[in-house]
Structures are given as structure tokens and as C-alpha cells.
């Protein structure tokens, strides 16, 4: 499985490096979302401002929206010229395909989250304290998000309504991740990382559960796609 996962992840990342869709579209999109939140909630004026207080939640909403785009892109490359049939014919372990595709999106999202964190610090006037908790919650939340996204990405890829179906399926499932990640970031930014440890555990549980679910379910879902 791991060999196949590496092969698929390498292929997807190579395609992204060549097409630059992530860099040219997903990153600017997420930055625009962060900027629009800033415009909607007024200028950041110190720690007491609405924007500053809402920064963790706004950050994760932006990440969520970007995840949908990244997952859609991940399956769009399989929809061209029968590539999804090619993937089935390849003989690759479906669990390996799942882990590989999720890992490739995960890598892209983690890079995006670094950029977005900088934007939030700058635009929302928040000091990025509690670095360890921030990073750990980013990793755990991102694994959970891309696992769910990859599961529903393959479900929606076989339908004509794929662009609208994916967010419809995805957002309700990741609501607990959004909540836990926001709470963990809130605790970290407030300088009380101990308060966020429990939320980090929640994120880790969801990440492991969704990852396990994906490795089991992806094969049958790919067959039906």
C-alpha cells in the first residue's frame, strides 16, 4: 500500500508542479477569502476587535474552502480522457491510491496554511503564539479534512453534479474538525495551550478515524465512480 501511495502522491504532486493550479488559483483564492473577511468585519484594531477575536475561526473557514478546491482539482485530473479508468486498470491498491491522493492534497494544504497564517497575523493583527499547538493542530486537522475530502471527492467525481455535490457532502462531515481546530487555535493564540490540548486530541481522533475509513471505503467507492 505504501509503495502505491508514494507513486500516486508523486504523480499528483508532479502534475500540480507542472500545472500550477494550486499556486495560481487555490492560494490566491484562500488569500482573497481572508481579505474579504477582513473587509466584512472591519479593520483590526488591537486584540479586542471582532476580526482579531474571530481570527482562528476565519482562518479555518478559509482553509475549509480551499480544501474543497484542492480536492476537486485532485479528482479533476483523474476525469480527463479516462484517467480514472486508467487508475483502476493500473492495478494499484485502492487504499494506496486513497493515501497517495490524500497525502498530495495534504502537502499542498499544509503549505497553504503557512501562507494563510502569515496573512492572518498581518491582516487580523494577531501574534502567532503557541507554535507547537498551532502546528500540531494544523497537521491533525488537515489529515482529517483531506481524508474526508478524498472520500467524498471520489464519490462526487462519478456524478455530473460533482462541483456542487462535493461541498454539500463535505462541509457537514468536517464541522467537528472546524470546531476543534478553531478551539485549538484560539487557545494557542491566547497563550493558553493547555486549554487546547483536549481539542488537539479530538482532531487526532477524527484524523485517524477518517483516514482508516478512507483506506477501507475508497476501493468500493472508486469502483462505483
Amino acid at each position: 500500500m505504501w509503495r502505491d501511495a508514494l507513486l500516486v502522491a508523486g504523480k499528483d504532486l508532479r502534475i500540480e508542479a507542472r500545472s500550477k493550479v494550486g499556486l495560481g488559483q487555490v492560494v490566491p483564492f484562500a488569500l482573497v477569502v481572508v481579505l474579504l473577511f477582513g473587509l466584512a468585519l472591519g479593520p483590526a484594531a488591537g486584540r479586542g476587535s471582532v476580526l482579531s477575536l474571530a481570527a482562528p475561526g476565519l482562518y479555518w473557514v478559509a482553509v475549509l474552502l480551499a480544501t474543497v478546491l484542492a480536492v476537486q482539482r485532485s479528482f479533476a485530473i483523474e476525469a480527463l480522457d479516462g484517467a480514472s479508468d486508467g487508475l483502476k486498470l493500473s492495478g494499484l491498491d485502492p487504499a494506496g491510491i486513497f493515501v497517495g491522493k490524500a497525502a498530495a492534497v495534504c502537502g499542498q494544504l499544509l503549505a497553504l496554511e503557512v501562507v494563510l497564517a502569515g496573512a492572518v497575523a498581518l491582516l487580523y493583527d494577531r501574534h502567532l503564539a503557541g507554535g507547537l499547538l498551532l502546528v500540531a493542530s494544523c497537521v491533525a486537522a488537515t489529515v482529517g479534512l483531506v481524508s474526508v475530502g478524498t472520500i467524498y471527492g471520489v464519490v462526487s467525481s462519478g456524478t455530473r453534479q460533482r462541483e456542487t455535490l462535493l461541498p454539500l457532502l463535505f462541509f457537514p462531515m468536517v464541522a467537528p474538525i472546524l470546531l476543534a481546530a478553531t478551539k485549538a487555535w484560539d487557545a494557542a493564540l491566547a497563550g493558553t495551550p493547555g486549554r487546547g490540548a483536549g481539542w488537539l486530541d479530538v482532531l487526532a481522533v477524527f484524523a485517524v478515524a477518517y483516514l482508516a475509513m478512507g483506506t477501507v471505503a475508497f476501493g468500493p467507492l472508486l469502483e462505483d465512480a
Binding site: 502505491d4 507513486l7 504523480k11 508532479r14 502534475i15 507542472r18 500545472s19 485530473i77 480527463l80 480522457d81 479516462g82 484517467a83 479508468d85 486508467g86 486498470l89 493500473s90 492495478g91 494499484l92
Partner: peptide, 26 residues
């Protein structure tokens, strides 16, 4: 299988596409 579709990735070179398929098939 050579089907109506090519089963190839547009954003990979010819060689990368073939190598991917060969590696996948071990």
C-alpha cells in the same frame, strides 16, 4: 487495455505517463 480514451495525464510527459503505468503494474 487500449480504449477509446487514452488513460493518460495531460500534464505529465509521455515518458512519465508510461513510467507511472509500468511502476503501478510492477
Amino acid at each position: 487495455l487500449l480504449g477509446h480514451a487514452s488513460f493518460l495525464y495531460d500534464d505529465l510527459s509521455v515518458e512519465r505517463n508510461v513510467r507511472f503505468a509500468v511502476r503501478a503494474a510492477r
